[in-house]
Amino acid sequence: MAFVIPKETYSGKVYPVTIGTGDNAVTFGGENVLPFNGFEGSTPNKPVIAYEIQDIPPSDWPENVKKPFEAVSGDPVKWAKHCQDTLGARAIALRLTGTHPDRENLSAGDAAKTVKDVLSAISVPLIILGSNHAEKDSQVLVACAEAAKEKNCVIGKAQEANYKTIVAAAMANNHKLIAMSELDINLSKQLNILITQMGFDKERLITDPMSSALGYGLEYTYSVMERIRLAALAQNDATMQPPMVADVGMYVWKIKETQALEADLPMWGDLAKRGVLWEASTAASLLISGAELLIMRHPEAVQAVEKFISEMS
């Protein structure tokens, strides 16, 4: 009996999302199959990795991921240029950590200035991320969305507690938007619906189902992503069809496995390699479960994942 490959034909498709402007704009999403399943459909765009930078020096990053940026991380503009010009970043994710009330408590105006400065120094797309303080983010991101008007940036993250102002700002200034909810497919769906009900085009959305690090809840993110992707493809659920982002670096570089010295835990092996692999393997797992956009920190981890992505087809 001749073997017929059991192919799935899905009725749904992930929206392609383009960010940035001009020659350096990038597009991700657009596929109508599960990740790495190009044999049964089309995967027009490869996943994109954005390098994470901050508006303030990364004093809270562990040594091993601070070091590669030592010479540039004192200044977000230099840092961004380094990622673009030296590391070949296809996109930059600027996290406005310094605006958090418990950190430097920088103002919305400060943040907007940083965004402007960074934008004028780079030509690759910019992802603008708040400090994850719901209240403060709604002021900060509104100012930044305006400062970045017409640059086709990604603004994030809109959450249930603050989405209204952020959505309005992203819409008024023609940006894409990350909608984040906490590890639950229904919450994700609901937030996407609320946002589109405000008139925001669902084809401009990016879903963040919340990332987690390998060993610290990765399986939850993994399965929520698989379920979202299946809902998009098999059930043709339009609210689940925006591409997904995995904000990998910030979750990975705060756990014990990326910081504990080999001298203290000899069974865990070389710390530098371990940290890099932790970020790369978390990222690779989330690519397999459905992420199209990754936000990462360590250059070696990014390189490893790029090699992995190049083996997708």
């Binding site: 390998l214 060993g215 865990w268 092996g269 070389d270 390699k273 371990r274 692999l277 932790w278 393997s281």
Partner: peptide, 9 residues
Amino acid sequence: KWKSLALFT
């Protein structure tokens, strides 16, 4: 060791 730890996890 570092490879094993990540893969086991």
